[in-house]
């Protein structure tokens, strides 16, 4: 059973207890899988909408494109968390963080729980957004750019992106506390360890949003 309430509302107490236990990636794997499935659903929704853009020659892709989107999102989530944990671990190690990579990976996975809720909301908003579009097959490069911009813009997509940033900051807060507790770091070092990659990520996200 995943202690969701404790992780979200009192992550300090949760990580204090976690550090006393041996490292285990079972529950983190389940969390990442759930996160990945929700991301996959959102990707499948976007892929289904993109089917209408396919030219006649690529019509055979219409059935498998959502499946490809879903699988890619699930696998991509695992890879992203792995890389993200690696970045956090490297930076925190440079700032004298203690413990192995598995512990960093563990706390990173627990920290993604807010993004699970964010993914649910994002999937609903994306579905509403793509349902409002009437898309036609595109052939030229200019059309592809125009359609992509249209698919990625709009109030619902903006709201989705803003919510994504909010839950990401929420996750950053959990990672920060996790670093302090699990990697035995001062708040300043932990804030730097988490803050640098989070700041880069937010800059990239905001640039895309603008």
């Amino acid at each position: 059973m995943i202690p969701v309430k404790e992780i979200l509302l009192s992550p300090g107490d949760f990580f204090d207890e976690l550090i006393k236990k041996p490292e285990s990636l079972k529950i983190p794997a389940v969390i990442i899988l759930i996160y990945g499935i929700l991301a996959g659903v959102a990707a499948a929704i976007a892929s289904s909408a993109s089917v209408a853009l396919l030219p006649r020659e690529a019509a055979f892709m219409s059935g498998i494109l959502p499946v490809i989107g879903f699988v890619a999102a699930v696998i991509g989530t695992f890879i992203f968390i792995l890389i993200w944990a690696g970045i956090l671990h490297i930076i925190s190690s440079l700032l004298k963080g203690e413990g192995g990579f598995s512990r960093t990976l563990e706390l990173t996975a627990y920290g993604t729980i807010p993004q699970i809720f964010g993914s649910i909301i994002t999937a609903v908003l994306m579905y509403m957004h793509f349902s409002s579009l009437s898309l036609s097959p595109v052939t030229s490069q200019a059309d592809i750019v125009a359609v992509t911009e249209m698919m990625a813009s709009g109030p619902l997509m903006t709201a989705s992106a803003v919510i994504g940033i909010i839950v990401f900051l929420w996750s950053a807060n959990i990672w920060l506390i996790g670093m302090m507790k699990c990697r035995k770091m001062q708040m300043k070092q932990a804030a730097i360890s988490v803050g640098i990659p989070v700041a880069v990520y937010l800059i990239i996200s905001l640039m895309a949003l603008i």
Binding site: H129, S131, S132, L133, S134, L135, S136, P137, V138, S140, D143, A146, V147, M150, G154, P155, L156
Partner: peptide, 10 residues
Amino acid sequence: QLSESPAKNN
């Protein structure tokens, strides 16, 4: 190449 449904225009 493209259009949005008028009834659902956001």
